[in-house]
Design a protein around this nucleic acid. Structure first.
Lengths: 290, 290
DNA sequence: ACAGTGGATAAGCGATACTGATCGGCGTGG
DNA sequence: CCACGCCGATCAGTATCGCTTATCCACTGT
């Protein structure tokens, strides 16, 4: 289970082709074939169906493990390298689009450490988590939906600590002409049969909502992979589906925002960090979490 | 960052000697030396001080990552191998000593699947978590202390899911002649200066309590690494220190059990599983979590 | 039937990863 | 103070590994 073999395995599984994976990795097709053969031989079982190239059941299992393992390997390298260098004079902060605005904390930080250059980068949940693990970001802010006082369920990426920073109630965004739009508050169970917009980067991922409502409902009409809240609200107004958002989203024409009464869920944002290296990161972490 | 290199690195760091590690791993001392040199060369930094052999700062970082990575690698292999074989006719359940007794669930299970052979193994928290990850146990039961409706903070070992099974209040075990033993209920903050028995396998680990009380107090007088509750209570009765336990522990002579009023904490046990393979594990999981 | 596509296999060669032997620095006991 | 012993570094040699190139073979679509 050499990491190289794992790497080519996921590349092959992703691209569905030995030759394509070979090209992507800078190998020969022959080498890739031998890699897969070595893995299958080592584990004593077929990992891929050929023609078309598709993971077998054990292959699926391995795939679930392979990506996190490779990620952790990278994270370990990054972490070690960070430990050797000087604590940097700049600070890079990764944040998901709707994580509670760190603007206040940033001004506080610049007051206490004037010479510091701070960069704020907006990215998706997974990108932020990976960026923190890989040392690309010194700190990360991730938002999501969870039961009150539950931590967010994050990706399993390296040794990181999280601390909760902010909670806020949830609202459902419906088009103004939706039959339920005149209500004051809603129960998500009333909406299991509605059509939803799956916007995993900004709205509550449907999978989380399904887990919270303990239903199989909540079918996605379309998925919006972007990170722009206005676009999402426009999609809602146009009747493409509903979305669950934190209450603080700005009201938008054509969209009604109704408080979610049950199940008891909150929008939560958490601070994510591996090792806190420099004093800048330390004070920012302190300001953000406290 | 070949796993082999990581393996020998942790072996060397643990044993504090190249030659000893070589013996343990079945290598030559020369090979171990080359392994470490390769790692240090790859990462561009010294990982170990020599004479005496001790991790450098970057080495410490790498150590934090290495063990989980190696564990996950093993877990991946085990998971794949489990996917290939037949679902087994027997079921192995790992449980921490104080995880809520699965006796009721087990009888339920044997009623519905009479031919099944079930093994219950008691182990420490970490051993159970690793056993589940490695496929040694089909299911795991782990208990611990957490804020109400918080999940337990578990070790980062492979892709596993947890579901809460049982909550129960906490008590402090004090010797009968303790000045506070006549009280009805206690606040842990009243006890930050007391002496505690650190029994991480069965009682609430002191680190968890410190986090919950947000103090640096709670100093350990002695640590009891065993898993026998009676022994622990005997230590308490003999005045060696206090311990926090779930309320359901049997009363013991010389020991007073007082409810913990604040901070709000519960004893919680969780079901831990990777993939549910056989029907036996599926129904046991259903019974335990339902 | 036949080309074309895409994975498997074979041969060869440079790189790798061990072992055994030797060297060298440091601490220890006489 | 010296000599020895311990332990890690280094070197040389060899077996194996892991690539590439070249070729083969099974299946697909026409």
């Amino acid at each position: 289970m050499d990491p190289h073999l794992l790497r080519t395995f996921v590349a092959v599984a992703e691209s569905g082709s030995f030759s394509a994976a070979a090209g992507k990795l800078g190998y020969t097709q022959s080498a890739v074939s031998q890699h897969i053969a070595a893995l299958e031989n080592d584990l004593g079982t077929a990992l891929l169906h050929r023609r078309p190239v598709t993971p077998t059941v054990p292959g699926e299992r391995l795939l679930e493990h392979a990506a996190p393992i490779l990620l952790r390997l990278d994270a370990a390298r990054a972490d070690v390298l960070r430990a050797v260098g000087e604590p940097p004079g700049s600070l890079v902060l990764g944040a998901t689009p709707l994580s509670a605005s760190p603007a206040r904390a940033l001004t506080e930080l610049r007051r206490s450490m004037p010479g510091l250059s701070v960069t704020l980068e907006i990215a998706g949940r997974e990108a932020v988590a990976q960026g923190v693990a890989a040392g690309e970001f010194h700190l990360g802010l991730i938002d999501g939906v969870a039961a009150p006082s539950d931590p967010l369920r994050l990706f399993d990426t390296g040794a990181r600590r999280t601390t909760a920073i902010a909670h806020e109630p949830l609202v459902v965004a419906l088009p103004d002409d939706h039959p339920l739009a005149r209500r004051k508050r809603l129960n998500l169970h009333d909406l299991v049969d509605a059509r939803w917009i799956d916007a995993p980067e900004i709205a509550a991922p449907l999978a989380d909502l399904r887990a919270a409502t303990e239903t199989d409902g909540l079918r996605a009409s379309i998925t919006y992979p972007g990170t722009d809240t206005l676009t999402l609200l426009a999609l809602v107004a146009a009747g493409h589906g509903l979305a669950v958002l934190p209450r603080s989203v700005a009201p938008s024409t054509g969209v009604t925002l109704l408080a979610v009464e049950a199940p008891r869920l909150v929008h939560r944002t958490e601070l994510l960090h591996g090792h806190i290296d420099g004093p800048a990161a330390a004070t920012l972490a302190a300001v953000l979490s406290g």
